[in-house]
Design a protein around this nucleic acid. Structure first.
Lengths: 342, 342
DNA sequence: AGTTAGCACTCGGGCGGAAAGAGTGCTAAC
DNA sequence: GTTAGCACTCTTTCCGCCCGAGTGCTAACT
């Protein structure tokens, strides 16, 4: 779609002021904003054409114009320029994240930082465990019948839980546990270490089966936890500050809290940075919202997603670089920590 | 304050229908609800007195009556009866909680269950670490320069983190670490194991100081994490469903998210079950909300808090027993798990 | 003395029309 | 192709009105 330079400038100006104010933009107020000197009538003519091209909409005849989804899209693809993130925001992000720590902590910091920075809700998923393997299993007795199990994955994820059994825990039991786990479990993909597999494994152990089973089952649960990519949501309350989301606030919150559809959206995302604007989304609850999603990769492999959710009038020019920068950073930190640990 | 039996019945009926409907209650509609046969005029006379006693309020002259804070209070103290929680809710709670697991998991389940059951926001704090001691410290190498630290407290709390250092981790280093920690740290109160204490400890180790310091610092951080009672909030979005909270929704959410004032409120609570109604609260943001807070004890010691936050027109008669039941349950489970592990 | 019927009164909510304001679309001139 | 001018449209706001719900009071009743 070809647009004259003036039309482009007008579209950009409308998008930007609408993002700023949330009010429909009229031809007169545009005169002050545009770099060139043209009358409001000229602007009106152009706006009328932009409407018929589907790039703008008017809420009603006598109101100003508002960008349509296609308008935002055009703005993002052609007009906004691929700005670098400003140094200030970069510093803020880095300060908020520090040097990471373990993956879950890192992601939670990243989510909070993103929510704060953008004044939107932030989604984040932990690195996928799909291809992860068990790197290490530890069992530490903490009572006569209670032990702590710790699982470390090849992705650097750390999971632990307390596990109770009916038999007394003693040194031979521990030894048998280490024998079994180090020969049978360490190195296996997480997905293979499920509860039924543990039952067959225990069955093959003869006399030890009874005493080891609870702990093997515990390992299976840890593996399940670790394999599951869980999805975090930060700064939902930020969304309440936007007038245009107010009336569906409750619905929107519930939708986000539920997580499943969000998960579907996220795992659909195969692009570098994906922008979903309003009704482009198939979920009714999101029709007044936009999403910016980006994947981060750990060790060269696409692995998880970070993103923001806000009203359609997001400051795309700033947020897209923000999200991209953050995913890069998270990916780098996670990759580094995985490398370190090998 | 003495009230005639009829006035009591009227007050109770007003509180209960107002809780149900959220609309001011008029004298005529009360006729149908009240067990005795009286005319609306009589009811009006009584209502007028209840107003002058400060137990009811009228939003405006020509509206029905609404319970005042004092009215709710009177209802709670004298009229609602100390109902037991119905078996159905009890079953729901128990099903949601299962048999617990580690304290943090237990509390998060409890919070979710409470939020679901009450359709309000639920607050919960992890058991206080004030008096807790370090029961156990483990260090598991997971890379040449990276190790996992695990800390277990006498309260059954389990904390772990990944810790990086500049020196290569080898067996002698591990031995030194275990030496130091088991003689110097295990058994100490969490509060004593802070970063500066670790620095002096490391300094006293001479040549080992450099290599051990990062890990001792890691232990200090774990101890800090474990000592800190963190505060969870579940089901905030439930609050959006209440008309009377709608207009301050954003403020309220932010207030809750911040956590500090909430923390102050919670730690003030020394009663068995404390009910704070609307403006009894000193926080402006909560003036349209009520809180029901109750403490749970672990091993006979008051230790943490669970509670709900909702509009002033809470169903106190149901929620107070719910909260009490849940705190009892949580206390029992936590006490049991601490006992088990000793 | 307490209860009831009756009635005038008050106040908020809803409806409608008028006025204001913002912005457009069109036409005619530049 | 651009601009000035103007009539037109549509929303928002305000005001006045009426309606209904509910009250408070008085006077009568038990």
């Amino acid at each position: 779609m070809e647009l004259s330079e003036r039309k482009q400038k007008i579209l950009a100006a409308i998008v930007e002021t609408y993002i700023r104010t949330g009010e429909p933009v009229g031809s007169k107020s545009l005169m002050d904003v545009l770099p060139m000197k043209v009358s409001s009538a000229t602007i009106r003519n152009d706006m009328a054409e932009l409407v018929s091209l589907g790039l703008l909409e008017q809420p009603h005849t006598s109101a100003g114009r508002v960008p349509s989804h296609a308008g935002y899209r055009y703005y993002i693809d052609h007009l906004m320029g691929a700005r670098e993130l400003d140094a200030d925001s970069r510093r803020k992000i880095e300060a908020a994240i520090g040097d990471g720590g373990d993956p879950e902590e890192l992601l939670s910091k990243a989510g909070e930082a993103l929510a704060d920075l953008t004044n939107c809700a932030a989604v984040s998923t932990t690195p996928t465990g799909e291809s992860a393997r068990i790197r290490r299993i530890e069992m530490v007795p903490v009572g006569t019948r209670t032990a702590m199990l710790v699982l470390l994955t090849s992705g650097g994820l750390l999971k632990s839980r307390i596990c109770r059994s009916d038999t007394v825990i003693n040194v031979p039991l521990l030894e048998r546990f280490y024998n079994v786990t180090s020969t049978q479990l360490v190195g296996k993909p997480l997905a293979d270490v499920h509860t039924t597999a543990m039952q067959t494994l225990a069955a093959s152990l003869g006399a030890d089966a009874f005493s080891l089973l609870p702990f093997l089952a515990g390992v299976a649960e840890l593996a399940r936890d670790a394999a599951q990519t869980d999805i975090r949501l930060d700064g939902q309350s930020n969304l309440l500050g936007y007038r245009e989301l107010e009336e569906n606030a409750y619905e929107l919150m519930e939708f986000l809290r539920n997580g499943e559809p969000l998960n579907a959206l996220i795992s659909n995302n195969r692009d570098d940075v994906q922008v979903l604007i309003g009704k482009e989304n198939k979920y009714r609850q999101l029709e007044r919202s936009s999403l910016i999603l980006a994947r981060y990769s750990v060790g060269g492999e696409e692995s998880g997603t970070l993103g923001v959710i806000g009203p359609t009038r997001l400051d795309y020019a700033k947020l897209i670089p923000s999200v991209r920068y953050l995913t890069d950073l998270v990916g780098r930190l996670l990759t580094r920590s995985v490398r370190d640990e090998e």
